[in-house]
Design a protein around this nucleic acid. Structure first.
Length: 211
DNA sequence: ACATTAATTGTGT
DNA sequence: ACACAATTAATGT
């Protein structure tokens, strides 16, 4: 058991930590599709994934499910950790995506280990950081996909200010205003031009049929 | 009118 | 994102 833990969680350094996990952890297998965590349920332990994939999701007020993330071997759930530490009820669903083997750590050990074992504390922080990084990535993607619309809006605003249908500006200046790069703006503008909405010239953009 | 140069825009990787 | 090519406007001779 201990060697298996070391293999799956190479981050755990202290021998004592490994022993405590092996001693107090409760192994539970789940079949594919089983749901083992529901919103509103009190959480008295957190699962370390030994084998398989679990899906963490959140049901919104209507009826659709938003997948937050998947956990694989060697990981644990950031939401779960947080809920345990502040004694709140779960906001999320957890479901076995494949057959899984989980090792449940009773919540009373979390605070204790955090102060006793540096590598456990690092593991917890790393779990939070990973989820945070994922969020940042999503934000980036959303921002990127919105550049089309932001560019159109930008041109409209300029038109209002200019009273004229000819905007005098360079691609570079637009890129700076929209936190983008000049090449991206150039290519987007060209697409819009091909749609007949604008006409491009050096240092100016003539609005034909915007909106 | 022509050449030179700088700024702007286009394109491939 | 970067590097380079191509185009255009501006300026000097």
């Amino acid at each position: 058991m201990k060697s298996r833990l070391k293999e799956i969680f190479p981050d755990f350094q202290e021998e004592g930590l490994i022993e405590e996990i092996a001693k107090h952890g409760i192994i539970k297998p789940f079949k594919k599709g089983e749901e083992f965590l529901r919103p509103g349920k009190f959480i008295n332990s957190i699962p370390l994934v030994l084998e398989g994939i679990i899906k963490i999701s959140k049901k919104d007020n209507f009826d659709n499910e938003v997948i937050l993330y998947y956990l694989k071997k060697g990981e644990t759930c950031a939401h779960n950790l947080h809920c345990c530490m502040v004694n709140e009820v779960s906001q999320i669903n957890a479901e076995a995506e494949t057959d899984v083997t989980l090792l449940f750590i009773p919540l009373e050990f979390l605070d204790k280990w955090s102060t006793e074992y540096v590598s456990w504390k690092r593991f917890v922080l790393k779990t939070f950081k990973n989820k945070f990084d994922q969020l940042l990535q999503v934000i980036d993607e959303i921002a990127f996909n919105n550049i089309d619309y932001r560019l159109i809006n930008y041109l409209n605003e300029k038109q209002k200010i200019a009273k004229d249908n000819i905007i005098k500006t360079t691609h570079q200046d637009i890129a700076i205003d929209l936190n983008s790069s000049r090449e991206v703006i150039s290519r987007l503008l060209k697409k819009i031009e091909h749609q007949g909405k604008i006409k491009l010239g050096r240092g100016k953009i003539e609005l034909i049929n915007l909106m």
